[in-house]
Design a protein around this nucleic acid. Structure first.
Lengths: 193, 193
DNA sequence: CAACGATGTGTACGCTTGTACGCATGATTG
DNA sequence: CAATCATGCGTACAAGCGTACACATCGTTG
């Protein structure tokens, strides 16, 4: 067959118009986080992300050499955001009591509030199990969280508190019958006293 | 070409000898758990499991109609085993104090002791996020755990304890610097008092 | 002891995936 | 203003996947 297209033929454009899109990379990161939240790391394929961000396949593979690099990048961004939120809350708290309140708020608002954040955290946990690059991300995140808590609590308490927070997140994630903010606060108070 | 094999030709056997293997299904379940522990749910393909169990591909697809059915089956078995271990420990504990010790042992031995169990738990968590069949498994598991703890603790404490255990498991899973059994016990005591 | 059905086995098919690659384009830079 | 190269874009390819299916075998059952 004569595959060559006739110049004047009325067939649809084969090449889309080239777009000027200076921060496409950043947009891809955010889109990837959306895709992971909705379909899991397993659903985060180059094609799915490209489709969601409305860019051609070649664009995702251009900006991220491999899927592993993509995951490392986007999870780093996510962890960074959550860690920063906690650090701010801890820095702003004048005393131990206020810190506890702020932590409870951090849990309810930043973590448990949106299913999105919740899912992303757990997806990161399991993805990190087998990808060294992601282990680094989770460890840095844990390190920063603990450090932030140590602004108001001794190291042992901070560590236990951090573990409890992790558990509450996971519990909320799995439970049909989520704990109320008061119940969450009650648990936090208990382990700090 | 004449694809028909000559009867007397010396070519190697196309069909392996048929094996009598009455509890192959059970063996497949255990093998699947091994594969998941090592390569994750993502690596738990029909082919990988068949290879690991040394059975042909057709055998896994015969015993498990789909991958989803397989996951539901094997995770149910796993959760059953861990839940039973906890229930036994709680039943055998004469009082609250002993129950705490038993819980600490459960954590150190059954959960944190083997990376295998640890990984399987987290894999289940994230897999359950998107598969209704697995949600049921995790919820039953949580339900049983809480029920077992309530043999010795009031419902509120049981719930908080359960969350803390979950968090300690996850923390251990991610941490390069795991908590000692004493530290674990310290955290447990703290939240129950 | 005969037939039947559960189980064992090999293979084919269509699909999606990651990745590589060639070419187009236009903002930047000298 | 010309050259360059980062970025945009489409496509091809091999590999691995789930699933379906036809046929072989033999313990079980009537």
């Amino acid at each position: 067959m004569t595959a060559e297209a006739l110049p004047g033929a009325g067939d649809e454009r084969v090449h889309r118009v080239r777009r000027y899109d200076p921060d496409r990379r950043q947009r891809l990161v955010d889109t990837a986080l959306e895709v992971i939240a909705e379909h899991g790391v397993i659903g985060a394929t180059h094609r799915a992300i490209a489709r969601a961000a409305d860019v051609p396949l070649g664009s995702t593979t251009y900006h991220f050499a491999s899927i592993d690099e993509l995951l490392a990048t986007v999870f780093t961004v996510h962890a960074e955001r959550v860690a920063q939120a906690l650090e701010e809350r801890m820095r702003e708290a004048p005393d131990r009591q206020a810190a506890l309140d702020a932590l409870a708020r951090h849990l309810s608002a930043d973590l448990l509030g949106s299913d999105r954040t919740l899912v992303l955290a757990v997806e990161l946990y399991v993805a990190a199990a087998r990808r060294p690059a992601l282990r680094v991300v989770t460890q840095d995140w844990m390190e920063r969280s603990r450090r932030a808590l140590e602004l108001h609590f001794d190291p042992v308490t901070a560590r236990e508190l951090d573990a409890l927070v992790e558990g509450l997140v996971l519990h909320q994630f799995l439970s049909t019958d989520p704990m109320t903010p008061e119940q969450v606060r009650h648990a936090l108070v208990r382990i700090t006293r």
